[in-house]
Write a protein that binds this DNA or RNA. Structure first.
Lengths: 207, 207
DNA sequence: AGAGTTGCATACATGCGTGTTTGTATTATT
DNA sequence: AATAATACAAACACGCATGTATGCAACTCT
C-alpha cells in the first residue's frame, strides 16, 4: 500500500501538468485580451506559476504559441460523434460551425491572424494551421470528396459556407454577448437549407 | 505675382499635410505589420517625421488611431458611381466586395479587431466603426430597405453575403498573394447568382 | 542512501515603445 | 517690426515585457 506522501508524482507528470496549465492560461488570455495584449506575465499569473516555470519549458513566446496551437488542433480535431457514413454537406457545415462557435476558437483566430503579420511566427505556426484548416475541409470524407470533384457548384457552396461561418465566428469572437445569436441563426439556416437542396438533388447518403 | 518664397504655406496647411502623412503611414503600417506590431516609431519613420511631430498633433496612440479610422471611413464612404436608383441586392454585394477587396480594408479590420480586445480603444473607435458598418448596410437605399422589411429571406441572404465577404477579406488580408483569387470568384459568383434570383423574383428596379 | 538530474522560483539585466520636456524655426497677430 | 503662438525636432525619463542567470527543492537512478 502506497504511503500518503503528498509528493508521489513523477517528473513527467509534473511537467505535463505545468505545461497544460500554461497552455490553458495562454488560450484564456488570447480569448480575453487578444494576441496583441497577451503577455507572459499574465499567462503565468493565470496559471499560478512564475515566469521561471514558463521559461524552463519554453524557449520563448514562439515556442509556447506553437505548442498552444498544436494543442488547440488536437482539441478541435476530435469529432464528437461518428458521422463518417454521412456524406451530406449539411452535416459538414453543422459540424464546422459547432467547432467555430466554441469560445476557444477565438484563440485560433488570434494566432492565425498574428502568424500572418509576423513572418517568423508564421513559419512556426504553419504546420498547425495547415492541419487545423484540414479539419474543416470536406476531403476527409471520401464519398463527399467524390461528389465535390463531380460538381463545381457544390465546391462553391462549401466555400461560401466556410467563409460565412468564419465571418460569423469573427463577429462572435469580438462581441461575446449573445446579442448576435439571431443574426447567426438567420445565416446558418439559409446556409443549411441551401446545403440540403444540394444534398437532396445529389442523393447524399444520410444516416 | 506671388514671390517664389519656399515657405508660402499657412499653418493650417502644414498641419493638414503632416497629419495626412501620419495617417497614411499608420494605414501602411497596419496593412504591413498588423495592429500588434505597429509602433509610433515606425509610423513616424515612414512619414518622414519625428515623434515630436506626432505627439504635437495627437495626445497618444488612441487619438491617432481614432483619426485614422475616421479618415478610412471617409475613404470607404464615397461611392464610385451613382447607383441610388438600383435597388438590387446584387449591386449591394458587388459594391460591398469592391470596397472590402481594397488593401486598405485590412487596416479597418485590424483596428476593428483591436478595438474589441481593448475596451479603452473600443470606446474611442466605436463611432467610426458604427459609421463604417453602415456603409455596407442596405438601409441606405430606401427602396431596398422596403424589400428587406417585407422579405425575411432577403435579409438572411444579405447577411450571408456580408459575413462571407468579410471572411474573404480576412483571408485576402492575411495572404495578399493572388493565389486565392479563384477561390474568391467561386464564392462571389455563387453569392451574386443567389442575389440575382431573389432580385428577379421580386422585380428589383435595375438601371 | 548517495550523486546527479529535472522542475520551478527569485532576482537581475536589457531592449523597446511610449509619454514628457526642452529648444528652435516658422507663421500669425497687432 | 515686435510679440505671441504654432509646428516640429531632439533629448530625456519611465514603464513594461522579454530573456538570462542563480539557487533551492523535488524526483530519478544505481
Amino acid at each position: 500500500m502506497p504511503t500518503s506522501r503528498p509528493t508521489a508524482r513523477t517528473q513527467a507528470d509534473r511537467s505535463a501538468e505545468t505545461k497544460g496549465r500554461l497552455i490553458d492560461a495562454t488560450v484564456a488570455c488570447l480569448v480575453d485580451y487578444g494576441y496583441a495584449r497577451t503577455t507572459t506575465v499574465e499567462i503565468c499569473s493565470r496559471a499560478g506559476l512564475t515566469r521561471g516555470a514558463y521559461n524552463h519549458h519554453y524557449a520563448g513566446t514562439e515556442a509556447l504559441f506553437t505548442d498552444v496551437l498544436e494543442q488547440l488542433y488536437l482539441r478541435f480535431a476530435k469529432r464528437e460523434s461518428d458521422t463518417a457514413h454521412d456524406d451530406s454537406l449539411e452535416r459538414l457545415i453543422r459540424e464546422g460551425w459547432a467547432k467555430m462557435k466554441r469560445p476557444e476558437f477565438k484563440a485560433v483566430i488570434e494566432l492565425w491572424l498574428a502568424s500572418r503579420n509576423d513572418p517568423s511566427l508564421g513559419a512556426s505556426l504553419a504546420p498547425a494551421i495547415a492541419r487545423l484548416s484540414r479539419i474543416f475541409e470536406p476531403r476527409a470524407n471520401p464519398s463527399l470528396g467524390e461528389r465535390l470533384d463531380a460538381d463545381p457548384d457544390l465546391v462553391a457552396l462549401y466555400r461560401l459556407a466556410f467563409e460565412a461561418t468564419i465571418g460569423l465566428a469573427l463577429g462572435r469572437a469580438t462581441s461575446p454577448n449573445g446579442s448576435a445569436v439571431q443574426h447567426e441563426n438567420q445565416v446558418l439556416d439559409l446556409l443549411l437549407s441551401l446545403a440540403r437542396d444540394q444534398d437532396r438533388r445529389q442523393g447524399a447518403e444520410r444516416p
